[in-house]
């Protein structure tokens, strides 16, 4: 809700700022007002830095031509890095999943960002994801293994199965990251699907 009765009491530029802030995810009318007043109180330079950062990100950030991660250049840092193992390709759904994988410092291959997941109930099919671009990369490059790193949700499962069905006939090794009990989790509270996969993907000690 844009909170019209409240906005009538504010000066127009302030009301506009509140209305714009309200459009941000997870921000309600009260939070928007609090943020607007905060921005009014801080020094002009600080507020301008925020405004410039928003403008700059909209101007300069686009998709990497190769992996569809966000970047300010034609190719992202990972795709430009010659030390990366190009025979290993990790498929993730969002750029933030790529960052999570990178934080592990374990994976030295390259990525492909789908920019979403197949979600039948939301009407998101494979056509709107970067799947055609993924297929093109696999035909052209020296990739030997594709690691599917989608979330262990219904949508993540659907995406992984769909991709496996599509990519396996190409003669590639297609794997999916393991899922089971989370660190600090509780066996007693684990659901069947989690326990079944934990058992299936157990390893010898």
């Amino acid at each position: 809700m844009s909170g019209i009765p409240t906005m009538l009491h504010y000066a127009k530029p302030l009301a506009r700022l509140v209305a714009e802030l309200e459009k941000l995810p997870g921000i309600g009318p009260k939070s928007a007002q609090r943020m607007a007043f905060y921005l009014l109180r801080i020094p002009r330079e600080e507020a301008m830095q925020l405004a410039h950062a928003i403008a700059e990100v909209k101007e300069k950030i686009g998709f990497c031509r190769e992996c569809f991660n966000f970047t300010d250049q034609e190719l992202c840092d990972i795709c430009r890095d010659t030390r990366r193992d190009r025979s290993l390709l990790c498929v993730v759904s969002e750029p933030r999943d790529l960052m999570a994988m990178e934080r592990t410092n374990e994976f030295r291959g390259v990525y492909h960002v789908l920019q979403g997941v197949i979600s039948p109930q939301d009407g998101i099919g494979p056509d709107v994801l970067r799947i055609r671009e993924l297929q093109a990369r696999l035909y052209e490059n020296e990739i030997q293994e594709v690691i599917l790193a989608t979330n262990p949700t219904i949508e993540g499962d659907a995406t992984a199965f769909y991709l496996a069905r599509l990519l396996k006939p190409l003669g590639l090794k297609v794997t999916r990251i393991a899922h089971g009990l989370p660190a600090g989790g509780d066996l007693d509270y684990a659901d069947q699907a989690t326990l079944v996969s934990a058992l299936q993907w157990r390893r010898e000690m």
């Binding site: 039948p120 499962d157 659907a158 069947q192």
Partner: peptide, 24 residues
């Protein structure tokens, strides 16, 4: 407390799509 999370349905794209449809 989970009674069943239907792992067989989650492990097959054809079944998963149909179970999703039944819910919708």
């Amino acid at each position: 407390q989970v009674a069943s999370s239907f792992p067989t349905l989650r492990g097959d794209l054809e079944l998963l799509a149909r179970a999703t449809y039944l819910c919708e």
